[in-house]
Amino acid sequence: MEWIMAVAVGVLFMIGVYLILSKSLLRIILGTSLLTHGVHLLLLTMAGLKRGAAPVLGSGGDAYADPLPQALILTSIVISFGVTALYFVLAYRAYQTRGTDEIDAADEVRGGEEES
């Protein structure tokens, strides 16, 4: 089971990195989202995918799934959710201010070091 997940995580990382290397800010944000998906799946996989009951006491069974990585993933999900939301708004503002969606577009202030 783990090796399928490893391949899936690898594919997510691959696509994420490819998207991050593109010019458009929107594609880059999608790339970071895929990367965080990949890393959350990785966290789940690396803790082991053994069979067991959901980590709720009283749900029966002798063995439970490891609860720690689930808590870590939950924490990491909300953090990356907050950051992604901020990134989207920032991209929108950057588009409004600069008039381009390209992350490294040369604009007129380049080299001129205009102070804010």
Binding site: V39, R98, S116
Partner: peptide, 24 residues
């Protein structure tokens, strides 16, 4: 400001990337 809008997306990107690697 325009300058902040140019630099901030890069700053966010590099830190999101390193945070992702941190979790990995």
């Amino acid at each position: 400001s325009k300058k902040q809008m140019r630099e901030a997306p890069k700053y966010l990107l590099i830190n999101i990337l390193s945070s992702t690697l941190f979790v990995a």
